[in-house]
Computed example of a mutant assay.
Amino acid sequence: MMEQSLRSSADAGVPLSILTASEGGIYERFGFGAAVWRGPLRLDVRSGLRLRASGRGSVHEVDPHWLMDRAPTVFERFHTRSFGSVSRRAEFLGDVLFEPTGDRLSALVRAAVHLGENGEVDGFAFYRPSTAWAHSSRSSTSSP
């Protein structure tokens, strides 16, 4: 499938092929490699955020330190029951959360969890708000 797609693109004179994949290493044999490991994501929710599936449960902002200890277990539960999920290196959270020196949690990091109907954390996100928002007042964080 990849070879046919790339051949068709080359035949059509397409000068560049870009692949977005969760596991870039799989496609190295086709000449693809990681261009970036992470980048900014801008999400405009002023007009609402429509989800594909109706969800049950609730989302809560939490202290990133509190979540850091629990996130690997939550991810592992998701990973074992989700076909196609890609595993993560043990250092993944540190790469995302800590200052470049690696010795302390970034002051900009925020965290949120999704609590399922049973009250169990079944999803999470670590994020950094835009710089303009990062220094404004924010709601207090708590543990669910």
Rank of each mutant, 00 (worst) to 15 (best):
A53N: 08
A53F: 08
S54R: 12
S54P: 00
G55F: 08
G55E: 05
G55P: 03
R56K: 07
R56A: 01
R56Q: 07
R56L: 01
R56H: 04
G57R: 04
G57H: 05
S58W: 15
S58V: 15
S58C: 14
V59Y: 14
V59E: 15
V59D: 13
V59N: 12
H60Y: 13
E61S: 12
E61G: 11
E61N: 13
E61H: 14
E61V: 09
V62C: 06
V62N: 09
V62H: 05
V62A: 06
V62M: 06
D63M: 01
D63L: 04
P64K: 01
P64F: 02
P64V: 00
P64L: 01
P64I: 00
P64N: 05
H65Y: 05
W66F: 10
W66R: 02
L67M: 02
L67F: 01
L67D: 04
L67H: 03
M68K: 06
M68F: 06
M68H: 10
M68Y: 12
D69K: 12
R70N: 06
R70Q: 15
R70F: 02
A71R: 08
A71D: 08
A71P: 12
A71G: 10
P72D: 01
P72G: 06
T73D: 15
T73W: 09
T73L: 11
V74F: 02
V74Q: 01
V74E: 02
F75I: 01
F75A: 00
F75Q: 01
E76P: 06
R77E: 11
R77S: 08
R77K: 12
R77Q: 11
F78I: 05
F78T: 03
F78P: 05
H79L: 14
H79D: 10
T80Y: 06
T80H: 14
T80G: 08
R81W: 10
R81A: 05
R81F: 02
S82E: 12
S82G: 09
S82D: 12
F83K: 13
F83H: 10
F83V: 14
G84T: 10
G84W: 01
S85W: 03
S85C: 11
V86K: 11
V86A: 14
V86E: 11
S87I: 08
S87C: 01
R88V: 02
R88N: 11
R88T: 03
R88Q: 15
R88E: 09
R88G: 05
R89Q: 09
R89S: 14
R89C: 11
A90N: 09
A90D: 13
A90I: 04
A90L: 10
A90H: 08
A90R: 07
E91G: 13
E91V: 07
E91T: 10
F92P: 00
F92W: 10
F92M: 04
L93W: 11
L93T: 09
L93H: 05
L93G: 07
L93M: 08
G94T: 07
D95H: 12
D95R: 13
D95E: 15
V96I: 15
L97G: 00
